[in-house]
Design a binder for these strands. Sequence first.
DNA 1: AAGGCCGAGTCACACGTGAG
DNA 2: CTCACGTGTGACTCGGCCTT
Length: 664
Amino acid sequence: MVQTRRQSGKVSIPRYDEDDLSDEERVGGANVHKRRRISEFGKRRKIRRSNPKDGKLSILPSMPLDILFEDMSEARWAELLYGATNCHLCGTMNIFNIDFALRRRLCLSCKKTNLVYSGKFSKKFPEFDPVILDLIPYATISGWRSFQRSYPPNHKLHNKPPSKYFLESDIYSMAQTFGLLTKNIHMRKPGAKAKLEEFKKERVEFVKDVVEYARVCEGWAVEEYKRLSGLKDEVVTIRRNEITSRLRSLGYDQFDLNAISWSRHVHQYKDLTERSWNIMLPKLESEIKARREARLRAERHQLIRIRKRLAASAYRNWKVKNIPGRDWSLLPQDSQVLSWEGLGSAIEVDSDVVVGEESFEGVLGGLEEVIEKWKVDKKRKLVSLVPVATPSSSSISESHAQVQDGDANPLDLATSIFICTRPHCSSFRSRALQPVLGTSQLLSHTCPCFTFPISDSNSTPRVAAPFELRFSEDLSRVAKSLVECVGGDVARMTMKDMDKRDARFFCGACARVERSGLREGDEQLQDEEKKLEVGALSWRACINHLMTIHRTQEEHQELSDFRLLPPVLEQQAIAQEFCEPDPAFGQCAWLCACCDCHVYCRGTSRVGVITHVQTQHDVENPLEDEHFVFDSRITKLLRPPQVVRLDEETLFGLHAHATDHKKL
DNA sequence: AAGGCCGAGTCACACGTGAG
DNA sequence: CTCACGTGTGACTCGGCCTT
């Protein structure tokens, strides 16, 4: 709880005794001592007034005093309205809310402790007659709310009369008077009963009038507050206009003056003096300077954005003119090209130079050479990542970095499998890392691993994005075992060769799990039933199988446990595949041949690719195999493998192979 | 369920103070 | 005397709790 100044002992509690202070004394009567006490408190209250006459009785006519009560003179109203802003009960300062029904300034704290809610009266004062509540003026706002509760028109409590809160001292005082009158009745004093009835009637009338007049006064107070704040706004506006006109005459731009009009030096409820002007001027000037710089920065930023859009448009036109659509995916990203210094220097020229699309056309002439160099460098970097297996072991000692261009492209080897480890990379699918296979896929990989353009020694080195495209030794080893299974030359067999061979493998690890399941199941199984069911996997599906099924499991240890199916089963699986409709067919194995002819990318549906060709390449009636193609590699990767039955003999072969492998 | 009670947190503004 | 700045505190709001 916050301690008030009175509570902390800084302020003594003033007395506010209505009875011993006459109206005359309140507004300048003979009691100098009391007047000084009030005026001292008055000093602490500093409600700013533009006109020194404000706050005196001269403004009282604006108060609706047409209904004046005998118990409350004009002077006392003036004291209530414009007197000290201390709480009339505890003396706390800065109490601006006046309760017009109670005719007192009361702080929230006093309201909380001294107001009695009518609903609690009988419990709090069981010995008092509840009738007396009708004889006491009441507040309609408690100390817990600064407004009266109101309900929407359709609410059942919409017409509920406001809650009543009575001042505790009023209750005691009324109880005393009421008690006296009833006592007279008990004493059988003549006319006592009539006197009580008369008193009650008068008081009820009085309360009614007080409460009604309080509503009028509250309305006036709201209007008065509005009027005063309007005056205040006027003063603030005059000050602001004066300051801005002075600054304008000093040569400052209206743009920047608008920006500082809400500055705390400007937006103040104070008259502008020469002294304050001299003090604030240097501060304002530095503020204006900062604003102007910020504005110029923002304008420049906006200009650069517009120029970048123009440059991007010029680059696109250049691509259309010079690069066949199918090679676009091999080009650097637009953002990379925009930061290329050829375009960059045209974008960054001074703001007053007019830059149009044609400003970039001349520069773009030199772009092709830069891109060619970049592509060569990119390929060289990737090739350098492909390790060369030495004859003695499968460990990596050298790389293909020095391989002559005449040799077969190492990136196309079946064993050259890369993985992009960048989070949210487009090659991510179903949470498992997706391998990046083949030259075109590698070169069109969209992650900004390769800085463009390649930095020459004299240019400033750019901050490169972390290189996250990595040669995957694990997967490469698996691919190597697959190549060996089909009797291929690991150093020469390319991905295309593997696709052409189109062999079918099965996963040894999964087969062993299947076999142990059978063993535990029933010892009495027939020979036919002892046969294992395994999936017939293409070489690409093997890689996929490993990435999705075994990547997180312990079997991961036995990476290269894929085995070639016996020729009979292989033929059987291929035949089954041929007979059964491919569920992936028509779904997501279609590629655009216009922008991505030989480049692997995520396939889409047939309808999707047709729409793409129509909208992106302006082909009205796209033709299959000309504008879009079906990529069977994707279906082999995605479709569920055909199930073939493996006999014990092959399984023993598998077992022997595995133990042999371990011995080696 | 209505409606008052009550604590906690935030905001705006008046006051105190010291400098010029 | 005027002003800037820091501080104290009443006003206000919100939301949960309690009573009727």
